[in-house]
């Protein structure tokens, strides 16, 4: 267990040592969004009784940064280790592929949670958003960030170059997250587009997380729990298999 703890600690140290970029940056962005959208669109109806737009926005922005940072951590830590070659020291050490994967996963989730908490502290007072259901909030926080982290790890493993990775991020992850009902209630979309919106897996994470705050969800919350749980298992199983098989890592 000690090797796993050490690797996890080292990975957490890695992103904490550049906290300006990894923690403060995301908080600043979230505050900007909150200022611009929350203030400018404060009159926009959310379709939910007693919930102002600013309040609606807060959980979405928190989760947005959780997901982006969990993804970013997984992908950048792995690709940097491959690039500088130091992953070899982990591969040569007496630590199983499963625990190697877990260490990278846990540290990415930890980053997501730290960023999420920092963003919460930064923006909650814009809309007075008080958590209503701690259990669903924690569930979607942890499982949601594990999905994004797992996707980041997969992207980090299969990308050979940094530009492939940033393509993956800019063209797939970021659009999916931005369109996952952070800024608009998906029920306000018309027929066809509403169906499209509900195909986005990130929507269920953000919707469920927001449910933790306002006790209201636009998709079925039980379905969200099951879906997010299953997706987390599937994504991380794939990631683990890639590490185990040594895809693009071993020769």
């Amino acid at each position: 267990m000690q090797p796993f703890i050490q690797l996890t600690k080292k990975e957490i140290y890695r992103f904490m040592s550049i906290w300006m970029q990894t923690i403060i940056g995301p908080v600043t962005t979230a505050i900007l969004y909150q200022l611009i959208f929350g203030a400018q669109l404060s009159k926009l109806p959310t379709g939910i009784a007693g919930v102002s737009y600013a309040t609606y926005l807060i959980p979405g922005l928190i989760m947005m940064q959780v997901l982006l940072n969990s993804f970013g951590n997984g992908s950048s830590s792995l690709i940097q280790s491959k690039y500088t070659g130091n992953i070899i020291f982990v591969l040569m050490a007496p630590i199983s592929p499963f625990l190697i994967y877990c260490a990278y996963l846990v540290s990415s989730i930890v980053r997501g949670i730290i960023v999420g908490f920092a963003v919460f502290v930064g923006i909650y007072w814009f809309g007075g958003c008080v958590p209503k259901s701690i259990s669903s909030l924690l569930f979607f926080l942890i499982f949601g960030s594990s999905i994004a982290a797992g996707m980041g790890l997969i992207a980090g493993i299969i990308s050979d170059k940094f530009d492939q990775l940033s393509g993956f991020q800019s063209f797939i992850i970021v659009p999916l997250i931005y369109l996952a009902g952070i800024f608009f209630n998906p029920t306000s979309f018309s027929g066809f587009w509403q169906h499209v919106a509900y195909l986005n897996p990130f929507l269920y994470i953000i919707d469920g997380f927001r449910y933790g705050f306002i006790a209201h969800s636009s998709a079925n919350i039980e379905f969200g729990v099951i879906f997010v749980f299953c997706l987390a298992i599937v994504i991380n199983y794939i990631g683990y298999m890639l590490i185990k098989k040594g895809i693009k890592i071993k020769h």
């Binding site: 080292k10 040592s17 940097q80 280790s81 130091n86 070899i88 050490a93 007496p94």
Partner: peptide, 17 residues
Amino acid sequence: KYNLGVVPQELAFDPFL
């Protein structure tokens, strides 16, 4: 692995440490 210590040929280091 516990019984083995290897100095690999390729230079590798962790730039954060």
